[in-house]
Each structure stands twice: as C-alpha cells, then as structure tokens.
Simulated assay, not measured.
Amino acid sequence: MDRATQLFQHHRPRLFGLAYRMLGTPADAEDVLHDAWLRLHAQGVESLDDPEAWLVTVITRLALDRLRRAKSDREHYTGPWLPEPLAPETDQPEAEHERSETLTLSFLLLLERLSPEERAAFLLHEVFDYSHAEAARILDIADDACRQRVHRARTRLREGRPRFNVDAAAQRRLLERFVAAMAQPTFDTLRALFAEDAIHISDGGGLAQATLHPLHGAERLARLYLQLGRHLLQAKVRYELTTLNGEPALLMHEDGGLATAMWIESDGERITAIHALRHPHKLARLAPVTNPPSAASL
C-alpha cells in the first residue's frame, strides 16, 4: 500500500463521518471520499504540510457542492425526504469515532433545516471540534462569517430538536408495544401509542407506497396504522428489532423482502414522531445484512 493510500485509510473514518453527516446518504459520502482519494494521489502527499487538514478541506468542499445540487433536486422529490441509514455492520465504528448522537437518523433529518453552508460550518465546529478560525479556513470564508453561520445553525436546530431526551431502552419498549398493537390492531390501542401532536413522515420517493405529506395528530396516525395493520395481517409481515445509526429501529419484511425501516422519537411513554423509510433504493443497502443472528424477530 503506497503512502497516500495509507494516509487516506488512517483518516477514512473521520472523513466518512463528515461526508455522511453532510449528505445523509452513504453512497454519496462514498463518492465524495473516492473523489478526494483521487485528488490526493494527483496532488502527492509530499507536497502537503498538513495532509489531514487538506483532506478535510477537500471532503468538505466536495460535499458542499454535492449538497447544493441535492437541495435543488429535493425540491422536486416525491413526498418527504428521509436520510438513508448506515448498514448495521458499518454503524458502530462510525458512531464510536465521533459523538454518536449526531449520527442518529433524527439528527440527520434535523440538519436538513440548515443551508448547505450552515450545515458545513456547524458540523466542523460543533461535531468535529474545529475552531471558528480553522473552520473558516476550510470553508474559505471570514472568521466572523463562520461564527454567524454556526450561530444561525444552532438557533435553527434548537427550534427543531425533540423536546425529550429518551434512552434507547425506552425507545425499544415503545417499538415493541407498536409491534404488539399492529398484531391485533384496534383504533384505541394504536391511538394510545401516540402523543396528541405526534407526526408521521414516510419516504417512498415515488417508488413505493407512502404518504405524500407529513400527517399530524394521534387520531390521524391511529387511523392510518389501523388500516396498515389490517393489511399487514393479510400480508404476513415479519417485524425485526435492530439498531440503525446507534438507535433502536424496526424493520418490516413483506413477501420475503425488506419493505420498511422505521424509527421513532418519543417522550418516554408515547411516540411523538414516527419515520417510515420505504424508498427501495435506500433500503437496498440494508436488505442483505438485516436479520443477523443477534437480531430480534417478532
């Protein structure tokens, strides 16, 4: 292995963590890393005073360009857009490398509130611990401009953050209750699962059946899942509890294939938000590695 490749592989977890948080999809993050690796070989390690800083700068700017294009594309996306989880076997190493709470799917979705420039500045400063001056150099902007971007990002994220900080065990118990309710679906049982102001968001991307707009309120969600529950009883769906991006998640298998990946937010007692990823291309990376021996099938 040549020196450039050794250097790149050494920093790869950090670089991937940055690119994935910027873009919300592993495939796009991998594309950015590949482009950066090609540029490193073309540049030559010997010419770099600080190869890590150079790589972080290249990754950030490549991801920024790609995110700006993605923001435009998502304006024409069919229905809500949800981030794509990491495959389970790649989940924990990335989660352990940097602060894992910033890797959760709910947090990645929250980052969508930010402009690409705010997102980059926030991630560099708040997640990857670069000073304002260092982040400003990476982004090629003034220090004050970087501070303003980070401040705006903090404000927007604070407004959208879940009101409750609930541990994984409580989330898992709620998912188990959800599966039990879907096994014998009634309106009252399902409604009791949801907070009054609960929200449902589903991403089918126009390729799978999904709600085209977020649904709000316990009664609307109970009616939706009552209808789905009756359908799934006939389809003989299989439920699987797993962990995606460091948090409990529920996988739903229909006709031998992975049909939905679901994660929730809660107040500890009831579900406050439920996210259902049904886009087949986003699920494709998960399907080959789901239902490992340690997974809980229900």
Rank of each mutant, 00 (worst) to 15 (best):
L18V: 09
Q184V: 14
R147T: 12
D144W: 15
L190Q: 01
N291A: 06
L286S: 05
V45D: 01
D2F: 05
P85M: 01
R14K: 12
R74M: 07
E117W: 07
D28F: 11
A29P: 00
P162G: 02
A208R: 14
V56D: 00
H213W: 11
L190C: 03
T290Q: 12
A284Q: 04
Y130G: 10
G160N: 05
S72V: 15
R191P: 00
E101Y: 11
G217L: 08
T104C: 05
R14W: 03
V166Q: 04
A284E: 03
L86Y: 06
R152Y: 07
M1S: 12
F164A: 13
R154D: 02
Q227D: 10
I271K: 11
D267M: 04
Q6V: 11
V150D: 01
I201K: 08
G24H: 06
D65T: 12
V58W: 14
L64M: 11
E126V: 08
P292V: 00
V150P: 01
A70F: 10
L232I: 03
P288A: 03
F128G: 00
H132N: 12
T243G: 02
T78A: 15
F187E: 02
Q92Y: 04
R154L: 09
R3T: 15
E112Q: 13
P80F: 00
A284F: 04
I274T: 11
P85Q: 08
A27T: 10
D49P: 09
W54S: 06
R161M: 06
D143M: 12
L86Q: 09
D28A: 15
A153Q: 07
A136W: 11
A136C: 08
F164Q: 15
S47C: 07
R270K: 15
